[in-house]
Design a protein around this nucleic acid. Structure first.
Lengths: 254, 254
DNA sequence: CACAGCTTTGCAGATTTCTGCTGGTTCGTG
DNA sequence: CACGAACCAGCAGAAATCTGCAAAGCTGTG
């Protein structure tokens, strides 16, 4: 076991926190083979830097348990709402559509025209639930293991089910978009599912607020050229969109 | 076993409050596997921080906002709640469990002990969503067409997925129970799925309030003899249960 | 090389926090 | 009014934390 530098250990602590969403001082001490005092001092320092939330017994991620908070905030964000509304208008009648998870896609369900008749496949239980009240939409839930963080199904089952589909359209939700790196996400399971969605669909439309542009996350889903359209709340002539139109992506201004 | 950090528990309480619009101290105690005093102190502290409104017996959200969905779910009868609580206690550690849809099964998710480690398959998006916040439960969503009335997946996809499973236990939700007619439901698609669930599971436990007893619906799911246990809110000696125990069903009084 | 200055780490003892329990009191309901 | 449930106060044990201190390692200087 190589000696751990202090800074290195703190990096590992942050990484573990991202992965496990909860850290106990005692657990970390045995894991790193040092005393609890050392861990405690690390956590204090990380808390002072504003990177973790220090609590009695260990540390928690900053956001704590406010996933619903984020959801509510999303509902109030005019940008996300505009993107969702514009994306909902892209769904044609009598189509078969893949709808991703995430707050933006959930908002899409609220903006669907009442007269719309279509079939929507989704990996997201909240999206499926929201669609159930729409009389003209046939909802198909894609099974698989539930990722508790994103509330979407992932894994081999989900990917296999997507392999048997050829939907007309895929509305892709939360992911980073970058001119060079392309479409990226922060979770390997999510990556596999989103890649399968894009591969299956005749056309893929990415839904993104402008803060997703220029973002690179660890797992690459697809090249930009695989995106047909991009819905953002910016004006279509916005210079920030140039690199994307250069790759052939059609920008839909929300 | 990831022991629950105090601050983490308070985060979860806040999250649960946002989702359920009402919290009972006793319920939370069983859910988190701690004493009611601990919960009470948590609620007191959260109230002192101005995050919840403390009331006799539990806590309420501050503004008293109303979500029709949550309201309907919160309007649960004591009988259904008792049945759900008793059913939750039947789930052993390290089991693979099928959990049906419906309000009673949804309530089961709220009564799962915090320390439970298990895998739960479900056809119900609301159930899957509710289980996502449980740290020890691996959630598997069974895909298929969504029945908008029951909010469960049905159809060939669902039945096929069930054919590849051999779960230890199946908790069966809403259906009519009759000594002669057996287990019945009102929808042919539901019938096929529930029959597949019973056929797959090593044991099936029916969850029912007493108003479901003696009810016959058009589609027959199974004979009474295929039920291992029946959870009802009646006393086990209640004469209304005689016809069921005669068929070998073990009655669990809630 | 010696040595002071600094950081990091571990340890010991005092202190605080958390938690469950007990016994008595209050609240809500029939 | 009676009863059970919920609440409160206080206590004790366990765990986590805080405080001070000393040992060990690294760094730069004379």
């Amino acid at each position: 076991m190589p000696e751990l530098l202090a800074a290195e250990r703190r990096d590992l602590i942050l990484e573990a926190l991202r992965r496990e969403r909860k850290l106990q001082a005692a657990t970390l001490a045995t894991r790193f083979g040092c005393s609890q005092d050392t861990i405690r001092r690390d956590l204090d320092q990380l808390a002072a830097e504003g990177l973790v939330k220090r609590v009695h017994g260990g540390a928690l991620p900053l956001g704590g348990g406010d996933a619903p908070f984020a959801e509510r905030r999303a509902r109030q964000s005019p940008a996300k709402d505009a993107v969702a509304r514009a994306a909902a208008a892209l769904i044609p009648d009598d189509a078969v559509v893949l709808l991703d998870g995430g707050t933006t896609c959930l908002n899409v369900t609220r903006h669907l025209p009442a007269a719309l008749r279509t079939t929507i496949f989704t990996t997201s239980p909240p999206v499926a639930e929201a669609l159930a009240s729409h009389p003209g939409v046939r909802v198909e839930m894609l099974g698989g293991q539930l990722n508790p963080r994103t509330l979407t199904t992932v894994g081999a089952t989900t990917v296999a089910a997507l392999g048997a589909l050829r939907p007309d359209l895929c509305l892709l939700g939360p992911c980073g978009l970058h001119p060079e790196a392309g479409v990226t996400v922060g979770d390997p399971d999510e990556r596999a599912v989103k890649a399968a969605m894009i591969a299956a669909a005749a056309e893929t439309v990415a839904l993104a607020t402008s803060d997703k542009l220029g973002i690179v996350l660890p797992y690459v889903v697809a090249e930009l050229t695989q995106l047909g359209r991009l819905v953002v709340e910016l004006d279509a002539a916005d210079p920030a969109l140039g690199p994307y139109t250069d790759h052939g992506v059609v920008v839909v201004a929300a």
